[in-house]
Design a protein around this nucleic acid. Sequence first.
RNA 1: GGGCAUGUGGCGGAACUGGCAUACGCGUACGACUCAAAAUCGUAUGAGAGCAAUCUCGUGUGGGUUCAACUCCCACCAUGCCCACCA
Length: 987
Amino acid sequence: MSKYNPAKIEPKWQKIWRESGIYKDYSRKNKFYALDMFPYPSGAGLHVGHPKGYIATDVVSRFKMLKGYSVLHPMGWDAFGLPAENYAIQNKIHPEAAVKENIKTFKKQLGLFGFTYDWDREINTADPEYYKWTQWIFLKMFEKGLAYESDEPINWCPSCKTGLALEDLENGLCERCGTQVVQKKMRQWVLKMTEYADRLLEDLDKPSFAKASAGEEELDWEKSIMDQQKNWIGRSEGATIKFEIKLVPKTKSSERFLRLSLGKDWLEVFTTRLDTIFGCTYCVVGPEHPIIEKLKDKIKNYEEVEKYIIKAQNKTELERTDLQKDKTGVELQGVKAINPFNNEELPLYVADYVLGHYGTGAVMAVPAHDERDFEFAKKYKLPIKQVIAPDLDSYKKTIKTLEALKKLRQEARKEGIEFWLLGGLAGAFHAGIIYREHDDLDIIVKDEEQYQKIGGFLLGLGYKKIREKKVSEKLTNTIYRNDEGMEIDIGPYINQWDLKDKDFETDLKRLNESEALVLSKIFQIHLKEILRKNRIEEKDRIDLEYLKGKVFIEDGFLVNSGKYSGHPSAEAREKMTEWLEKKKIGGKKVNYKMRDWVFSRQRYWGEPIPIIHCEKCGTVGVPEKNLPVELPKVEKYEPTETGEGPLAGIKKWVDVKCPKCGGPGKRETNTMPQWAGSSWYHLRYIDPKNDKELVGKEKEKKWMPVDLYVGGAEHATRHLLYARFWHKFLYDIGSVSTKEPFEKLVHVGLIQGEDGRKMSKRWGNVINPDDVISEFGADSIRLYEMFMGPFTQNIAWSTKGVVGMRRFLEKVYRLKSKIQNPNIKTNPKSKIQNYKLDTVLHKTIKKVTEDIENFRFNTAISAMMILVNEMEKEEKISSTSYELLILLLSPFAPHIAEELWEKLGNKKSIFLEKWPEYDPKLIRDEQISLVIQINGKVRDQVEVAAGVKEEEVKKLALAQDKIVKYIDGKNIRKIIFVPDRLINFVI
RNA sequence: GGGCAUGUGGCGGAACUGGCAUACGCGUACGACUCAAAAUCGUAUGAGAGCAAUCUCGUGUGGGUUCAACUCCCACCAUGCCCACCA
């Protein structure tokens, strides 16, 4: 018999498949659309990591085909964009030529894997036939007011010489070249993605993916990717408040303040914590805020302010954010903001820790309950006023450690230290909880006399006496001093319910919980100290810091907040918002971190934006019939210094007639970003040659949504958000029938180099798939990449692992010689020749089927290996069994499967077969080995028939010598019997 | 700082809903075949103790629940990814 020779059989079958087009049966009833994230055809070619996702979709595609589906499995090229262009510039070839060349390489490489791609549907985003529709979508957005021009400062990469979207940055550096990005004010096109923010968010969770009419289904996306998107969209609900701006008169008068209303001058701020408004002690605007310019004449120290603003603007993104440096700012002297809730006059600052583009670009600062404000206030000696007291919920964490406290108490006793956990004076509530649960542990303090035991409490903690108790003025913290003179600050909130408060009972009723919780926190910390024999370790110092400096930023109960005092935060926010709305000085407001999509690039290699600027008519869309606006062929395509795209230099191309008035017009010379073409490509595959519509309605209805989308997790916040945005827009204008494009999304884990590092030229650890295929064959690499581990996990490459797969395939190949009678097929139902082997076989069918459906390819393959190992032990195997094995293997290793299938005498392709079903009767074992445990430990096992009764097993077990040895003379307290699994004797 | 993952032999990893931890593959050792090597096949392979039967320990650490925990609960540690002054 011939030897397994992949070098021969793989090209053979690839050719046959290509020519017969067996994958292109699109007439079946059920459809399955499997989509890969298409590659940029970069100059480097593929490394073994790239095809991992493609292999997975291919396995699933072939599986679905065998299951009787029509499968759409296309491939194409994301050819526009910076990487391709930079590559072209470096290699001094025209991007178009470079891309063409690279596509050829890529296509050849992909061809070696034997994928089921329908190359008739190949698309290329840089093809005018394709980008005609990218431009068309842009025009539609322009018509709907979703594409607009803006002059805001944007991120500019001085090296790539183009503007970038926020998403294209990595820590303030250009993602492509690592250059420091600067802020540059320039005209650009922006897509109003924020208009879709809520829908992009909601449709992740809500079952609104579905076709508008059909039954609803949920998005089957990985949680981590959904979380990343949610995080990126960053929705927060809050309120805006208008602070009136007043002047401080230049001359001091006997009146403390002469308020001069400026009439219309308001400062609007956004906050999610309106409940802390009474703690607002100053306001801050970002350096970009227009109010500064407006108040120019009124600000006494304008020069200083201006200097600060210029300095802030010159700071790079990195300096402004990356360094955990001191906060800086300058007071706008001469003006004050008035807190509408209590009419307090507050100083107004400009500081670059406030972002110009988020919310209203201005904030109310509450240093007692916001870390940033706290830091700033400390530095500029601004008052810090506490208005929130912690409530039970925010200290749930502390409560949960009570078990640990109990334990610690035991430990402490060993050290000869006795202590109690006491609820504080007002803490009876909380202590009550503890008391009820641990009545041996705690004492509830009920009255003032017992409060003295608070001393006892601290005493118990190793602090014999409270020597001093002082109240610091600023923070209104309570500070205790221990024997060693060490100050222990128990937080700014505790003294609100200090003993000296007259209305003890009221406090108790209203706010009791908080203090005790704080105390128990202290208690816990100090305990740790005792246990370390009064030596405070570094770790605990941090905990002490918590009580000293950490700002309480969580929700709680309001204090010092006028009539709102005593309300929980959430309730207070509602009431306060209502009040604002009534007074018409603010109200509910939702904000997003996500910004509109900066959509223009000052580069050559992208889709021209189909807009004409006319002096008379303004910006005019290119009429649909004139699409595509083709990218002119040019000699020079390098970016310019001016901030204008290279297209601006081509006068012949730029000068056109205005389609509206016929007068002179100029073309828009910016191009679209890399992500434009990929935002809708999933639709074009469905109908790639249609020159009337971007996708035909019938075909779209037939194929959408994409049933399976596989690609890298790095696209979680860009491509996947953009594509969803465009898809929703297309849904709104009636071009598509589904609200969401991708029903199931799986992210592929990286394949790292053999050294565990990212595969890259830089480390010299790149493995080329061509080499691996020529050495071991495509089926081996396919199998290996699916077998390495869980699909979504990053795993290092191992060529040794491929060797194992090759061995496995050779075993399968050799197994053929064991076939009893290769020419006569046996009916699996009538001729069960080997019950045990058939059991394994049917278990394998079950497992492989389920595992493919759940992307657990690694265990599917290991199940097949087990089956093969079993078959090897047999003298002879039936041809039926062997055929079933080949069928199971076929999605993973299609070439060898097809070859063996043919060798078995089959005339038609294996992929026209039916996927096997398992026989539920056969997957049950006849004999099982049942485990006998004594006190949960395995001591013996017995072979029994499946389904035996407890009584029988018990009898049998007690007859075993080993078991007798253990049980002899002891009382059997309990017997646990798990059918077909184990019996456990508790003695 | 926030969010999300992950932690099991020498390595990649398996274990369904709590029920024999380490399947499957790699590596290693020994053996068979061979003049020899490769390939292939067989046996062994978590750690420790013992001549042995066998026993003890063992899924990042410390606790807990349970007849029984990789799996559930609490606390902690470590690593990775993403986001990061978003008020």
